[in-house]
Computed example of a mutant assay.
Amino acid sequence: MLQVRNETPFSPSMFMFPDVRGMDTLYVVVKATFTFRKGRLFIAENQQPVVMADTFRGEPGQSSIRAASEAHLLKPGTDVLLEGEAHAPRGKPVASCPVLVRVGPVKQVIQVFGDRKWRGGVLSPGISSPEPFVKMPLVWERAYGGVHEVTKERVLGKASNPVGQGFCGKRGGSEMVGRALPNLEDPRQLIRSISDDPVPMGVGPVAPSWEPRKSYAGTYDEAWRTRRAPYLPLDFQAEFFQVAPAGMCARERLKGGEPVELINVSLEGVQRYTLPRCGLSVTVKIAGLFERPPLHLETVGLEPGSGRVCMTWRGAVGCDKRALKVEEARFQLLSLEGAED
């Protein structure tokens, strides 16, 4: 019987999947949760579990992902994700304010506006003044995007964010009057007219059916069904497992120890700290032999409103025809810097 020995204060998990080559592979995962208080990080008393499946904010396929599945193959980089809200500086209502998320080399800047609509103009619709806000959800529903149902048979949409707002499609100026603009924008590419088609700006997970993830999934055609199924297609790319939006994925994996700077995403206004350095080890016993796969930091999840930081590492052990001979997995914390008990 498989035994799991967890000698860490964190949440471990294991998954058995075929890898991109179709070889049975054991994926070992460690998820560490820390709390941020008074400028310091502590090991959280309540450790967050590994997420087994995508969870949505509303109807699946019609809303954004709240928490992305952590049951998958290896990621080629490190995702930085943030769950939370924009907060007006000093808690006073503002029409607009910037948000900054920086973790090591990863940086995302978003200009957050209060609610606005397209209003009638002599030649083309103009933009109404933003309504002051104190808090604004940092969700894809508030970013640029959406769909336009031209006919029942023809639906146009922003492939990188079909749940957003502001997408024009084939609508004319009069049809856009009264429609909402996005609250979250790229400060370098602000919307000026209904014909503008900017890149959606977000800090949360990208759904697997959205671009660019969809384009990495590969080709599932007749050749795949007859020669390759149920394994991944030959043109599948591991970038599919990267769920962070553009600007929030470190192509060279983070390691821990990176500085974090968050501005206007909490009541404090500014949060600064350093990611913990965790020396982790997983020893897997398969058919009497021991394997120690390297662990890679794949996800940094930030929840500044609740003062929570999650870091997830993953390693892989090829099992080939030994999948039923996995006997034990021992998870150990060898060292920890930058966080306290």
Rank of each mutant, 00 (worst) to 15 (best):
R277W: 00
S281V: 00
G279Y: 05
T55D: 03
T35P: 00
K255L: 05
E252L: 01
Q165H: 10
P162Q: 09
V265G: 03
A95K: 13
L333Y: 05
P245M: 06
G204P: 03
A95G: 12
L324K: 13
I65N: 01
F133N: 02
A246V: 13
Q3I: 08
S13W: 14
S124P: 00
Y273W: 14
K325S: 13
F42G: 07
G145Q: 11
V150R: 15
K321S: 14
S129I: 02
G269P: 08
A238I: 05
A180F: 14
P205V: 03
I43N: 04
V103N: 00
V243A: 12
A86T: 07
G269T: 07
R57E: 07
G164A: 09
E337L: 08
Y216S: 12
S96Q: 13
H296Y: 11
S129M: 08
K325Y: 10
D197R: 15
V103I: 07
G318H: 07
C319S: 06
K214D: 05
E141Q: 11
V29C: 11
A86N: 04
F113G: 01
L280V: 06
P49F: 02
P9L: 04
M16P: 02
M201C: 15
R228E: 03
T78Y: 01
Q47A: 09
F10E: 02
C310D: 15
I65R: 03
V51P: 00
R154M: 12
R90Y: 13
G39R: 06
G338V: 04
Q62S: 13
A287E: 12
S96H: 10
A339K: 03
L190S: 07
L267S: 13
K75L: 08
